[in-house]
Every structure is written in C-alpha cells, then in structure tokens.
Nucleic acid binder design. Structure first.
Lengths: 271, 271
DNA sequence: CGGTTCAACAACGA
DNA sequence: CTCGTTGTTGAACC
C-alpha cells in the first residue's frame, strides 16, 4: 500500500544535510567512483577533476537538492525518485552504488538512486539553473511570506504547493494531511481561500514538516547512517488511507486524481 | 490569399535597420509625438525625456526588434503584427501614426502599427528582457551553431524554428519553403533529423533569408522610404500555394494546422 | 509513478 | 508566434 512512498521530501533532505554537515565538513575528496555517468552534468573526467583535492566547507539544502559547498565550487545532489546516501567508515561499500566519493581520511560516501538522480558540479549556485529557480524552502517560510507567495495566484492550491519553483521541498506525501487538517480541497482556487484558511494551511504544513524531521524522517527512508525514520502512516489523517473512515466525520476517505498526482481526501470535510 | 502575410520577418527588419543606420546616425531627437502610450514601457513624459537631446549612434536589429543605440541608452522598436516605419523628409506626416520622432534637422520618423507594437527605452540591452532573451539572429548562425541549438531538443522542428527565444527572426513566411526544400515535415521530431537533413535545412534557411533581403523584402511590406520589395509568391515552392501541384512530384499542396500556425506542405515529399 | 524539464496549449491583456 | 504571463497537461528524460 505504501510501496510508492519512498521518495525523499523536505524532512529527509533536511536530515541528510544536517548529518552530512556534521560528518563531512573538513574532509577532502581523494577519489570519485562513477558508475552512472549520465547522472552528471559534466564528463566523468571533468567531474572528478573538479572534486579531487577540494574540501567540504558546509552542507545545506534547497528543496530536494543537497548542496555541498566546496573549497572551490559546489557539489549538488538530487536523489530523484528516491535513493540513499550512506557514510561508509570502513571499507565495506554497499552492494549497489551509482557514485562513491572517497575522502583522504579513508572514509567514503556512497550514493545510490533507485532509479535516477543527479550529481552536478557548479562553480556558483547562480550558475546551476535547476537549483537557482527553486522557491524558498517551505520550512523557512513565515506566514507573511507564505501569504505573499499566494497573493494574486489564480490556480489551485495543491499544484501550487507542489511546484518547486514557488515553494521548495513539499511533495505529495507532505501536502495531503495539511490540506485535510485545514479542511481545504486540493483543487480549491487559491483566490478563494480565506485568510483563516491560509493561516491554518500554513500552520499544518509547518507542523507536518517539523514532525517528520523530529521523528527522523519517514519509515521508508534510511538516513546517512543507514537508519530508518519513524514518521509513517500512523501520523497521517487521510493520506494513503483509502476506504478508511475520516477521523473527523467518519465518512470514507477517497482517492482522487488531482492533475498529474493523486490525492486522498475526505470529500465531506475538505471543501 | 496572401492577406495575412503583412508581418515583417527577419529580411524586412534587416532592411529597416540597414536603411535606418544609413539615414539616422548622427540625428538628434528634438520632439516625440506619442499617440499610443500603451506601446511604451515608460510613462510618456519619461520616454520623451529619455530621448530628447540624445543622438543616434547606430541602428541594428535582433530578431524582429530594431535597436537604435543612442548617445545614452537604447530605443527598441517592435512592429508587432505588422506596421511601417517611414522616414519623413518634409512636413507631411502620414495619416495614421502611433508614434513620431522629430529630429533637430527637421526630418522625422513616423511609426505605425497595424495592431500592436512596442517602442521601448532601455539603459542597456541586458536590461531589456524582451530582447535579452532572444536567440541568435538566424542569418548570423553557422551550421555548427545551428546544430548545437538543435542538440537535445525534444519537440517538433517547425515550432522550434519559430520560437524567437531559440533562433530569432524566422517567421511563418520564411520557414515553410526551407522545410519543403529540405524535404522535412514541419512536425518532424528534431531528434529524428539526420545530420544531412539538418545541413540541408540550414542551407535553405540561409538561402531564403538572403534571397528575400536581396529582393528588398516582401512585396507586401514597405521599407523606410515607403517602397515595396519584390520578394513574393513567385519565389515560393509550396508556401501559400494551396491546391497547386508540388514542383517536385506534382502531387497537390495541402494546408495543414501545425500547432497554432498553418503550413503549406507536399505530404508526399516532406516526411 | 517518482522528480524535473520541456513542449504544447489555452486564455488574456497590452 | 507581436509579446508576456499564468497555469495545465502530457511526454521524455535521466
């Protein structure tokens, strides 16, 4: 039932960045193993050449991208539809690896994508179109900023929230319960939302993201150390609860098509 | 039959820029008459204030925009769906005028749009989004540059050629015969084109643009001096020749919808 | 069906 | 395709 929820969203990326910052700052690239060159934005030799000898200064994130600031340039990683980043402290690499980075201290970082992801090198963040065009991280938004982003928008609320160019980091897992709890139908026109609804939605988004982070990310993901999070379906009110009763009114939760994504909703509570 | 061909494309703009450079360099703006303020990107007073007292240093073009480099800033003119720019040497203004510029030597330039056009002022070209985002002028492209622009494109060839952000200056009149002569269907996927087809298409585009320029632009347009060009349907192989025989195979030329534009093609020759 | 980009399209406005 | 904007949809891609 939850087999298609293995994609990292803001909480998991946030945790990767935090742990990677903790573990990797100060390390220097010694070697780069590239199993899947198509994931790169440079020829493998160039990519390797940019990294080797540089050191990691800081690790942050923007939306679903992890950003490693180097002594020269940036290494930008996107796990695509899902994947793992593992810190390897001994010589035991995991079986499946698309990319591996070895550091001069003997430790390594292994990256695997379930299907496809990116590892890009950029001189500056502004040079990298895919991250440069992202909106602000959802978790860093103030209510006022959220209101002003919604200002004058004509479309529906759910596609807006999922559009990474508007707000970065929200995905189909973290958008559904906030909408339910704010009692807003995913396809409601943004211009129809009352001030109170916007405030409720904002609060529920913040709550959901923080809750997921506090619980170490989702159960279906592994973190930098290979450990699973504890945030899962137990925390959901309607998401992925097809045919179960709405926790508020008891009516049956439905699955509907909302543009190109699916949504679980209570048609009675969400208007 | 040819009633909808009154929009200037690269050849006509090229000729305007050339003649305007010849005639206008050195002239100083003395007065600006603004009949249609909506065409401007500044309040009329500001627009006027930017121009008066400045002189024209050079006239060039980018796509369908004519660029007048001034002693300070740029005046950028786009004729939109069609229009005229006339050099007036006596005091007889044409009847219909949206904008008129008077110079200190007593001469004037009159601009008319059939429907909508622009006259913008910009401090630098980089400041002006509408021209800054244009692709390279079609006529200045090398074969290699043309190939690299097509690299990795997923859509159909005709919409690509008409997209001014990719290549500037090609319009629905100047695109049709090159496609026919290269034997390429307008809706062919770019990724399906062979190297030879790309080269043929490139050559035919260059040929068409240069031929139109050499003949003074299209018959339906007037130049800076009010004179019509001589490039017209006689030069076309299939464009606007509905139900006539294909000059190569004799089959009937068809008119088809290609996205939002129409195309005249030989369905037998163009694959 | 995932993330992201791109293309095609509609509608509107200037 | 005069051009911009906005948003929607579907496809292709890695």
């Amino acid at each position: 039932m939850l087999e298609h929820m293995e994609m990292p969203e803001l909480p998991e990326i946030h945790l990767f960045a935090k742990d990677m910052h903790q573990e990797l700052v100060g390390k220097t690239f010694d070697a780069v193993e590239i199993v899947q060159p198509k994931s790169l934005n440079l020829p493998p030799e160039d990519f390797r050449g940019r990294l080797i000898g540089t050191s990691i200064q800081a690790v942050s994130y923007h939306g679903k991208w992890i950003q490693l600031e180097l002594s020269k340039g940036w290494l930008l990683i996107n796990l695509g539809m899902g994947g793992e980043i593992l810190l390897i402290t001994d010589e035991n690499y995991p079986e499946k690896v698309r990319l591996a980075f070895r550091f001069t201290d003997g430790s390594s970082l292994a990256v695997n994508f379930w299907w496809f992801g990116y590892a890009h090198w950029a001189d500056t963040l502004a040079d990298h179109a895919m991250t440069a065009k992202l909106g602000p991280n959802a978790i860093d938004l103030s209510l006022e900023a959220f209101r002003s982003l919604l200002q004058g928008r004509r479309g529906a609320i759910k596609p807006f929230l999922l559009n990474q160019a508007r707000i970065a980091g929200i995905g189909n897992v973290t958008v559904q319960d906030p909408l339910f709890r704010a009692r807003i139908h995913p396809m409601r026109k943004i211009s129809d939302l009352s001030d109170d609804e916007v405030e409720a939605l904002y609060g529920e988004i913040q709550h959901t993201l923080r809750e997921a982070i506090e619980h170490g990310g989702s159960k279906w993901e592994r973190n930098l150390y290979g450990r699973h999070g504890s945030w899962g379906k137990d925390f959901f009110s309607v998401a992925y609860r097809l045919d179960e009763p709405c926790p508020v009114c008891g009516k049956t939760i439905e699955k509907i098509k909302t543009g190109s994504t699916s949504s679980y909703i209570c048609a009675h509570c969400q208007l």
